[in-house]
Amino acid sequence: MGLFTIIRKNRQKEREMRLLFLGLDNAGKTTILKRLNDEDITGISPTLGFNIKTFAHGRYTLNIWDIGGQQTLRPYWRNYFEQTDAIIWVVDAGDRLRMQDCKRELHGLLSEDRLAGASLLVFANKQDIANSMTGAEISKALDLLNIRSHDWKIQPCSAVTGESILDGIDWTVHNVANRLYGTVV
């Protein structure tokens, strides 16, 4: 029995997935997480450190790690890379000024060995705000079309209204399940 088989068996038993929420500060990572968990989103302070949430989604248990996005904290992101099944990259769709930063940080992540193979979901958050960039505009700005190393999808959404958040998580879980277990949810 090869190592991969062991890992696969072990995973199958647990049916756990580890999702990493990353993105620039002010993207809305914590708000999306709280919205997923049906928690109050009105009093959220910018994240100093990280939040962990575990909840069931279909047949799977999702361990979601939400890591603060302030510049000072970004060097610590790598502490959380190990065994990540999917990266949820959250973008503030109104933040035109920092799309370059956003693109640089994202592509930096994708070149990390320890994240190789992880699925990538890009949430184009804050669609409730009138003049936010669309999914297509963000795909272009972040140069998503040139990503070959990871399965990816962009999902416009709104953490405030809850719109399309579950759709994004569904895609992620499907994609990871396919890869890890060879099964669909």
């Binding site: 804050k126 705000i129 003049n131």
Partner: peptide, 13 residues
């Protein structure tokens, strides 16, 4: 003027 009725985001630079 914002063309939409929803709230909108403003950039000052």
């Amino acid at each position: 003027v914002s063309s939409s009725t929803a709230g909108s985001e403003l950039t000052i630079s």
